[in-house]
């Protein structure tokens, strides 16, 4: 009985808050605007708390790994040390994220790691390109031609092969590629609205199990 009430309450909260926020998109009303702003402020606070919860979960998972001496537990030690150091440096200085120590970690540890990890994917993309661009059908041939023109249109080598390749690249990006992308965006937006309405109308209840 208690569980059933909890579920009904959760569904009511979702529908109520959802309709109140959604109404402001269609109705010009000062009261509704203020209600929406308040609900958005609360949601931002809750999203921040959810992020902290995620961080606590990361710490708990790696602590369990260390305690159980599971494979790779030593790496977890470094992960927790890095996490703890950044958090400690941020809380020791009232400037927080803007403190020189945190900025140093961000600039000299986080940024190079992120950039190099993404740069590393260049090699794997190259091998993926070989598999994806093998001409097996008309579809893959079209993708190959578009990909090669856009790729070569951005480098001097392409200009050396064909002096009009940059114009061809611009044309592909401006017209057929934009057309396809627009169709995808519209399809995704329609799907988002449909899925959202199903939850707001109580047909789908992904958060209540």
């Amino acid at each position: 009985m208690k569980v059933k009430f909890g579920r009904s309450l959760a569904i009511a909260i979702t529908i109520g808050t959802g309709l109140l926020v959604l109404a402001n998109f269609f109705v010009r009303n000062e009261f509704l605007r203020r209600v929406q702003q308040t609900l958005l402020d609360w949601a931002m606070i809750l999203a921040a708390v959810a992020l902290l919860l995620g961080a606590v979960n990361v710490v708990a998972t790696h602590l369990r790994k260390i305690r159980g001496r599971r494979p790779g537990w030593a790496y977890s030690l470094f992960l927790l040390a890095a996490l703890g150091t950044v958090v400690l440096l941020g809380f020791l200085d009232p400037r927080g994220v803007a403190s020189p120590a945190v900025s140093w970690v961000f600039l000299y540890v986080h940024v190079p790691l992120q950039a190099t990890i993404f740069a590393l994917t260049a090699f794997f993309i190259a091998s993926a390109a070989y598999r994806a661009f093998r001409v097996r059908s008309v579809d893959s041939f079209i993708m190959l031609v578009a990909g090669i023109i856009v790729l070569l249109g951005q480098v001097p080598l392409g200009q050396a092969i064909w002096d009009r390749i940059a114009a061809a690249k611009d044309w592909i990006l401006a017209y057929p590629s934009t057309g396809g992308a627009r169709g995808i965006i519209l399809g995704v937006a329609l799907g988002t609205i449909l899925t959202g309405l199903r939850v707001l109308l109580g047909i789908d209840r992904p958060h209540v199990k």
Binding site: L51, L52, G54, A55, V58, F78, L79, L80, A81, A82, L83, G84, T85, V86, V87, G90, F91, G96, V97, V102, V105, F106, V109, H110, L113, Q114, I117
Partner: peptide
């Protein structure tokens, strides 16, 4: 180390 600094920064 990347995951550790990213999570720490996100917390801050």
């Amino acid at each position: 180390l990347f995951v550790g600094t990213a999570v720490g920064y996100a917390v801050l």
